[in-house]
Nucleic acid binder design. Structure first.
Lengths: 132, 132
DNA sequence: CCGGATCCCAAACGATACTG
DNA sequence: CAGTATCGTTTGGGATCCGG
């Protein structure tokens, strides 16, 4: 990435450049977000347009309410999505993607596409590996 | 992705098309791999060239031997990386990326780049959020 | 409808020690 | 050098109930 082959970044302009390979670099936080299993799917959905809470819940199979609300809160904190509540009764809440989130989403949907396109090769490799 | 707005894929050719939003679709396996915290970093390193075990260990700060060998084994099973042992003494093992792994790596390094480029915006958003 | 609070289990992860 | 084995801790995440 920044400085292949080294463990700490050089300093090209101002302060230490971020380097995901460095243990305590905050960029690791971003990669950790992708570990949050649902972030990828939420980003993909919201990049198509705003969604209400239960709407998202239905569209993303298998997610528990707790995980969804937790994940949405984290993503809001990270500035990836926005949240707007309408004082209807019962209350309506709408989540939307931010410009920042959209740039990440564009990268992330490519991973999803890759998964859909190459899953068969992966499954074949697994079968072959397990045959030994 | 495949069929936005629905929960199950249509069947264009042969069998059900993969759909990451579908709960039990195997494409979820791929996304789960990215949850393996070290996969991204290993892919990035190996896409630069082959590495020996301890070489990788040194280049990826903070990884435990156990996690590294576990993760490498999974990735080999998935067909993302190759493993070659040389009967030297002591034994030498070299890991390299496969053509399949390389296509995924190209997507994944973009995420890493995004992290390095946008981390400040994320940190700022967090600070702003926490101020409330 | 949109969540928060609580409980609980399984999996991930890390540290250490040991082996071919 | 390149792992495996074991143990203990931490975290993710699902189920359920409750409240605004």
């Amino acid at each position: 990435m920044s400085t292949p082959g080294t463990t700490e970044g050089t300093v090209p302009s101002g302060h230490a450049s971020p380097n995901v390979f460095c243990e305590h670099c905050p960029t690791r936080l971003v990669l950790d977000r992708l570990s949050d299993k649902w972030v990828v799917l939420i980003l993909a959905r919201l990049s198509e347009g705003p969604r209400r809470f239960n709407q998202l819940r239905r569209e993303i199979e298998g997610v528990a309410q707790k995980m969804l609300s937790q994940t949405l809160k984290k993503m809001e904190r990270d500035g990836l999505i926005g949240r707007q509540a309408f004082a209807t009764v019962p209350v309506t809440v709408e989540y939307s993607i931010t410009p920042l989130g959209l740039t990440l989403a564009s990268k992330v949907v490519e991973i999803a596409h890759w998964a859909e396109e190459n899953i068969e090769q992966v499954l074949a490799a697994q079968a072959s590996y397990d045959a030994n």
